[in-house]
Every structure is written in C-alpha cells, then in structure tokens.
C-alpha cells in the first residue's frame, strides 16, 4: 500500500476534508476556524471548499459552541467543533455532562448526539496556565462520551474519521507540540476503531503506558534504556474511553511491571484510573507497584526554567523504569 509522510496537523486536516466531502451532514465550527483557518491551521481549506454554511466562525462563547453543536446534532447534522485551547474546557463542561452525554441514554434513544469536540492541550511552549493544561481527566469522568487522544499522524487521521462517523459525542484531543511531527499514513482511505490501543514498541521488562505526546517521550526513553540493557514495551491507549484494557492487560501480564505516563495534574488523573484498572485486572501478574509519571499538582508556570520543572518527560520516565526494574 502506498504511503505518504505528512504532519500530524495535515493528518487532522485531511480527515476533516475527507469526511466533509463524504457526508454533507458534517459541519465544522468554532472560534477562528473559517476565515483564519484555525490558530494552528488545522481547518485549512474547509471554508473555501465547503462554504460558509458548513464551516463558520462563532462568537467567543465556548458554552454556546458546545450547546449549539448538541442541538444541531439532534437535528441530524454531524458537527465537528473546535475549542481552541483545552484550558477553556471548563466553560463547556456543563453542556457536556448535563446535555451532550445525557440525552441518548436518559431519553432512552429518542435522540442521538453525533458530535465531535476537537481541542488541543499540552505544555512546552510557555503558554502558562491558560494555554497549556491537559484537562482530559475532567471529561474522562463523564459517562456516554468517548475520548480519543492520538499521538501520531496515522492515529490522528484514522481515529478522527472514525470519531466523525460515531453516533456518540466524542472528544478528540490533539497536542500542540505534535502538530509539526511527521509520520507515514496510507494514501488510501482507512479508519481506526475507537477503543483500540496500539503497542508502539515491543519489550519484555516493563510496560510503559503513555498518552498523547508522552508516547514520543516514552519511545525516546525506551530506545535509550535499550542501550543500557533494559527492554520496555510502549503501549499507547489512543482512546481513553473506551479504554482497551485487553491490550494494556496483555502487556502487563507479559512484563509484570508497569509505568503510566500522563502529562496532567497527578491527583485524579487518567493515569490514576488506568492504574486501578490494571490492579483490578492484573494483580496476580504484578511484580512491582504500579508507578506513575505525571505533572505535579501545581499550575503550569510560564518561564522555561519553571515549565521544565512542571513537564514530565524522557528523563523522569527513564528514572522510574529503572526503579521498577530494580524491584
């Protein structure tokens, strides 16, 4: 199969183009997404190709962006909305937890809410605390809503296409530092099933479950550790909800040791929950305590020197893997 090397940004953009071409019910709206084509240029070309009815700018009103997407989805459209920075997700949570995720279940199937909320998070560019955080744990707590968090161009494209075709509300979380990264994707159309993890690198001593950009950090750590004779397996859940515990569990049962890496506040993080699920399902196979690498429970500061202290990465991962191996 022919493959092309594209960026993560292009992968998301291609998925939007292809799905809007395929299905006229797919529309795209949010702040700066139409004329300006998105602050990260992810929505490039949509307005000129599909017109202002299907790609349009909204007021700076995150609550109404989500609320209108819910309503429009109920009428039969498939809105793909953008919340520019994930730090602003708090403004939308009421509508996600009390409307979007409620309607299909509590109204017992009277309606469906096929919508995708695209957003992006991640530290490392001195965005400070209003343009940096990864708040997926807040949304992870909400039932009846899927959460996708891809780490590569291949995953981003295949999973966004699947998200747009899903009949449930889906939150699709991109990563600002991943937009420029490249990877191969097939020239032909493909989809990736939501709820399937991917073993990004095989190994035997330790399992590293890493999310979003932390997959990249984990792979770098794993490659360096290999030179020191430590073999680690990197598992990327790709979808946080539903979580593919089969793939994660298979890896943990093989290695007996697990580290979970999540660039988010430590307490109540998705890493914490993955840890308890592993404990419930794989307790008899564990040879060491489950460890986490996360950001601390501190607001991410601005200065490079300070942000570096906040941001988890390769070095901490290596340190923790060595700790696990020594047990």
């Amino acid at each position: 199969m022919e493959k092309r090397k594209i960026t993560y940004r292009e992968a998301v953009n291609q998925a939007l183009h292809e799905e809007m071409e395929r299905d006229e019910k797919v529309i795209c709206f949010g702040e700066d997404v139409a004329s300006y084509q998105g602050v990260f240029k992810v929505t490039e070309g949509l307005l000129s190709k599909f017109g202002n009815d299907r790609c349009f700018d909204t007021p700076i009103a995150e609550s109404a962006i989500v609320g209108t997407a819910v309503g429009a989805a109920v009428t039969g459209l498939r809105p793909v909305i953008e919340i520019m920075f994930m730090d602003w997700i708090g403004l939308t949570v009421d509508c996600l937890v009390n409307q979007a995720s409620m309607m299909h279940y509590l109204w017992d199937g009277a309606v469906t809410v096929p919508m995708v909320l695209r957003t992006q998070g991640g530290a490392g560019s001195s965005g400070c605390c209003h343009h940096t955080k990864s708040m997926e744990a807040w949304l992870y707590h909400i039932p009846h809503m899927k959460i996708v968090m891809p780490s590569t161009p291949y995953d981003a494209k295949g999973l966004l296409k699947a998200s747009i075709r899903d009949n449930n509300p889906v939150v699709f979380i991109e990563q600002k530092l991943l937009y420029a990264t490249t990877g191969e994707v097939p020239a032909d159309e493909y989809l990736i099933d939501i709820g399937t993890a991917d073993v990004k690198k095989e190994g035997s001593d330790v399992t590293i479950v890493a999310i979003s950009k932390m997959v990249q950090e984990a792979l770098e750590a794993s490659n360096e550790l290999e030179k020191e004779g430590i073999s680690s397996e990197v598992v990327d859940p790709r979808t946080l909800k539903p979580l593919d515990m089969e793939t994660i569990g298979n890896s943990v049962r093989k290695t007996g040791k697990v580290l979970i890496v999540n660039e988010a506040f430590r307490t109540g993080s998705v890493a914490s929950d993955i840890g308890i699920q592993i404990q419930e399902e794989c307790f008899d196979y564990l040879d060491a305590p489950i460890l986490r690498v996360t950001a601390p429970d501190v607001q991410p500061p601005y200065a490079k020197s300070l942000e570096n202290l906040w941001l988890p990465g390769k070095d901490t991962i290596k340190e923790k893997v060595k700790e696990l191996v020594s047990k």
């Binding site: 109404a64 609320g67 209108t68 309503g71 429009a72 989805a73 109920v74 009428t75 509508c95 409307q99």
Partner: peptide
C-alpha cells in the same frame, strides 16, 4: 437555551 439555538442552527 444554547441547545435550542443549536436546533435552530440545524
């Protein structure tokens, strides 16, 4: 209110 605006949008 926002959901109703969304019905109307649709």
């Amino acid at each position: 209110t926002t959901v109703a605006a969304g019905y109307a949008m649709g």
